[in-house]
Write a protein that binds this DNA or RNA. Structure first.
Length: 488
DNA sequence: AAAAAAT
């Protein structure tokens, strides 16, 4: 199977081969023909499997059929709109559009906040067919009448489950209201919650579902591990682990912007090259820091979930959850920054007693029991074993539980004096992924693809909105609040 | 329960 077999035009084949890719990934093999056919679709695939090219390539081709070579701005209406949840991701998707659209006479632009509007306005004035944007700044342009969306033929929501979550819905609805009802709509994500599936059903017209390896929403090439550790010793353990692997780049996730900055500062004081990225940093700093990390100049990046989705760092060997995310889906996205494109990766989570509930949810979602290993000298709280899941206590007291127990008796020693321990194994031929037991029953209930798009009926209770911003619980179905999303 | 996204 080659890109030519998928029916891509020579201009795109040439651009693809220049990037070095020779064979389309499974998601690309399935998505490209569907998008080319003009049908609505919903694409679910593992992180790091080439989803972006899966829609940018056919999107460009569809527009290329009637590309205008005119220099008049009036002949270059916006014909494709791609929305992304973070500025960095928008930039990355736009880079893909530019790369693959190199030999096609189409113009594109990336629109996002935190930067001067003038350049964007100027480019829009000259005319662009493809717009990649974050919602806020796009609406800003709409209000200022510097962009016109009435001729959009193709809409893409990248990281669709995030784009359709509570915080984004009002913006998305406003944008959808501006688009022609007659259009092609495409949704892509690694995870689709039940709620999002229902929203998607209202947004799309007879959507084709393209879904690759849903059982393994996390890559088989990622080795997961949990280090039970008391909350107070987490940062010491982190420094310890990073020192043990002095060369490996690492992406560290935390839950809050405050801790993000503090942790980067702590690591720096410990002599570890680290920087922070989060939403309170200036856009200039965000761009610069990410660029330093992507290029390898920066070794450790501490991040909030601003970096959880979509970001593609070449051959990143290690992701560490300093705190477990509150939502199990976010675990999938966070660790999806490693083990990409078939490479191996390590996902380490530092888990204190308080977080055991989150751990249980994550294991349920990904259908995997993550091996737990106490690092000597960095013990968890005494009540770690009593809190949260107790399912493996006696029954099936195999590797994981015993490993934790075996090392647990070590008295809490001074962290600095802690004995070296099994550190993240890096790729290499001998590092085989340690897979836990996979619970098929659990894995299957994440998103039932066997009967997608069941119309939201009464017995199919529609999700409701918890509108925290207005401080009240709104029990109307989400679909009602969305209004304009419906197009059936 | 937090973060992100316009200023």
């Amino acid at each position: 199977m080659s890109f030519a077999d998928l029916g891509l035009i020579p201009e795109l084949q040439r651009a693809v081969s220049e990037t070095g890719y020779t064979e389309p990934t499974p998601i690309q093999q399935q998505a490209i023909p569907v998008v080319l056919s003009g049908l609505d679709m919903m694409g679910a695939a593992q992180t790091g499997t080439g989803k972006t090219a899966g829609f940018t390539l056919p999107l460009i081709q569809r527009l290329a059929r009637h590309a205008s070579t005119s220099t008049s701005p009036a002949r270059h209406p916006v014909r494709a709109l791609v929305l992304a949840p973070t500025r960095e991701l928008a930039v990355q998707v736009h880079e893909s559009v530019e790369t693959y659209g190199k030999y096609v006479p189409l113009r594109s632009i990336c629109i996002y906040g935190g930067v001067d509007m003038r350049g964007q306005i100027e480019a829009l004035r000259r005319g662009v067919e493809i717009v990649v944007a974050t919602p806020g700044r796009l609406l800003d342009h709409v209000q200022q009448k510097t962009i016109q969306l009435g001729q959009v033929e193709i809409l893409v929501l990248d990281e669709a489950d995030r784009m359709l979550d509570m915080g984004f819905i009002p913006d998305i609805r406003r944008i959808l209201d501006l688009l022609p009802a007659q259009r092609q709509s495409l949704l892509f994500s690694a995870t689709f919650s039940e709620e999002i599936k229902k929203l998607a059903d209202r947004m799309l017209k007879n959507p084709t579902l393209v879904e690759v390896a849903r059982r393994n929403m996390v890559s088989e090439t990622i080795e997961h591990r949990v280090h039970p550790v008391s909350a107070g010793l987490k940062r010491n353990l982190l420094a310890h682990l990073l020192r043990h692997e002095p060369d490996a780049q690492a992406l560290i996730f935390v839950d809050t912007k405050l801790l993000c900055g503090r942790l980067a500062h702590y690591l720096t004081r410990q002599g570890i090259s680290a920087d922070a990225i989060h939403g309170d940093k200036s856009q200039g700093q965000r761009t610069e820091t990410l660029e330093a990390f992507k290029s390898g100049r920066l070794r450790v990046l501490v991040a909030t979930d601003v970096a959880a989705r979509g970001l593609d760092v070449d051959d990143l060997p290690l992701v560490i959850n300093f705190e477990l995310p509150h939502t199990a889906e976010d675990y999938v996205h966070r660790i999806g920054r490693t083990g990409r494109a078939g490479r191996s990766g390590n996902a380490i989570s530092l888990v204190c007693a308080e977080e055991k509930g989150r751990l249980a949810e994550i294991q349920k979602l990904i259908g995997l029991d993550i091996p737990q290993e106490v690092v000597p000298g960095f013990d968890p709280e005494p009540d770690y074993d009593e809190v949260g899941t107790h399912k493996r206590k006696h029954r099936d007291a195999a590797p994981r539980a015993s490993a934790a127990k075996a090392t647990a008796p070590t008295p809490a020693a001074a962290p600095a004096a802690a004995a070296p321990t099994a550190a993240p194994r890096r790729s290499g031929g001998d590092a085989r992924p340690t897979r836990g037991r996979r619970d098929k029953r659990v894995a299957a209930d994440g998103f039932d693809f066997s009967k997608p798009y069941a119309p939201a009926s009464e017995d199919n209770a529609a999700p409701t909105v918890d509108d925290r911003s207005s401080g009240r619980r709104d029990k109307r179905p989400v679909a009602v609040l969305l209004g304009g999303l419906g197009r059936k």
